[in-house]
Design a protein around this nucleic acid. Structure first.
Length: 240
DNA sequence: AACCAGGACGTGA
DNA sequence: TCACGTCATGGT
């Protein structure tokens, strides 16, 4: 009940976020960050094509510990090179790949990760990968695996990230060093396994963390002020 | 001019 | 298991 209530507390002020952002989609909205056209609020029917699915996977790797604006630039470069398809990506010279994704940082590691993932992706031949399979690919950790599951394949895996831990530990629901699978299990227990709900919730969490629940939080006008125990003495509603 | 961003891996205790 | 160092660019 608590987690579902918080969901609506976020949805009301922010509205549907239109994740996962794509380079382009019909009737998409401009990003808040860059000049892309890929947010599609309220439309959960993406990816519509296999190219979009692959683009989401690559974006999920590129955005590891990196802001999305930088990832947009990298994706644009890859698009320019026509490399946002598995076959082309595997053929692309390693140094050209590194050059293209340089804006997103960690380009040595990420180039290798993308190559390895692409080989894995191609072997799937359209099948949906299991979470364990994804985790066995070098460079795919829990968050990236769940992002791919949820946004590329519409599987009900709840994505946990640093923002999720920050927000929900401040609220008082968990501690700040809660383990990934532990917090994920809580969300997946409290919420029905609906990919639309999971997608929207995670996107809202990111938006909320950027707007109010920053490192230095802006608690004054926070929409969650009434349910948050941060900096207060009110009894916490700790579930973990 | 530090600090941070939609993490993951390798290492040594 | 776990804490810590490393990877790298660009925006604020």
């Amino acid at each position: 009940m608590t987690l579902k209530k918080i969901y609506f507390f976020l949805l009301e002020p922010y509205g549907p976020q239109g994740w996962w952002p794509l380079l382009e989609c019909e009737g998409g909205n401009p990003t808040k960050t860059g000049a892309m056209n890929g947010y599609h609020p309220g439309d959960y029917s993406y990816p519509k094509t296999d190219e979009q699915r692959f683009e989401i996977c690559v974006g999920a790797i590129l955005t590891q510990n990196t802001s999305w604006v930088q990832v947009e630039k990298a994706l644009q470069n890859l698009k320019q090179l026509r490399a946002l398809r598995p076959e082309a990506m595997l053929k692309l010279e390693l140094r050209k790949l590194k050059q293209a994704i340089k804006p997103a940082g960690y380009f040595n590691q990420k180039a290798r990760k993308i190559k390895l993932f692409t080989a894995f992706y191609q072997k799937l031949n359209g099948k949906i990968p299991r979470r364990e399979e994804l985790l066995n690919v070098w460079g795919i950790g829990p968050e990236t695996a769940d992002s791919i599951q949820l946004y590329a394949y519409r599987q009900p895996s709840f994505v946990i990230d640093a923002y999720t831990k920050r927000i929900f530990s401040r609220i008082g629901i968990c501690r700040e060093n809660v383990k990934y699978e532990e917090l994920q299990a809580l969300f997946e227990k409290e919420l029905k396994p609906d990919p639309h709900l999971y997608s929207e919730y995670h996107a809202l969490i990111v938006e909320h963390a950027k707007r109010y629940c920053r490192k230095k939080p802006l608690c004054k006008e926070c929409p969650l002020l009434s349910v948050c125990s941060f900096g207060q003495h009110k009894s916490s509603i700790r579930l973990l």
